[in-house]
Amino acid sequence: MAYLWIFILPIQLFWGHQTVSDIVKVKVPEAIVYAGKRSLIKVELEVKNGYHIQANKTKDEFIIPTTLEIKTYEGIRVERTVFPPANKFQLEGTNTYLDVYDGVFSIIITVQTNRNIQRQRHVLQAKLNYQACDNQRCLMPKTIEFSIQVEVK
């Protein structure tokens, strides 16, 4: 009998009360780039199970897209930020589809470093803006501030 509860307990914990903190988790592995070269930096995002966030490109001007801002940094220029293709989310009972992200996905940033930049670790400051919904609520837009460690070689 006791074994039965070992299985039920985690299910109950999972379906029980969840908090809205950490709806989106950001993970940035340290990036290695080369002075004077173009490099890619990967930002990994994980959207909490049951939630979705609006995609980077939205069809509706009022929907708040997911965006990534990187503060200007001497010697490292952000050239391009590429978001993944969006998933479709249908608003039930309507013909409206939203472009959303859920689960785990990555944003790829292309940076160009100056040739004379110091060969050492640099820290870029970044902000991720998003608006999340689950099946019972839409939350106010949020911003996560985080840093990206860039090792220049």
């Binding site: 009998m1 006791a2 509860w5 039920i8 307990l9 109950q12 914990l13 379906w15 029980g16 009360h17 019972q136």
Partner: peptide, 21 residues
């Protein structure tokens, strides 16, 4: 004891959802 402990956790974790329902 295990049964009681499990029941305690079920009630504790599901209460907010039950209230909502």
């Amino acid at each position: 004891k295990t049964l009681l402990f499990s029941l305690y956790w079920i009630v504790l974790t599901c209460l907010p959802n039950l209230v909502y329902a």
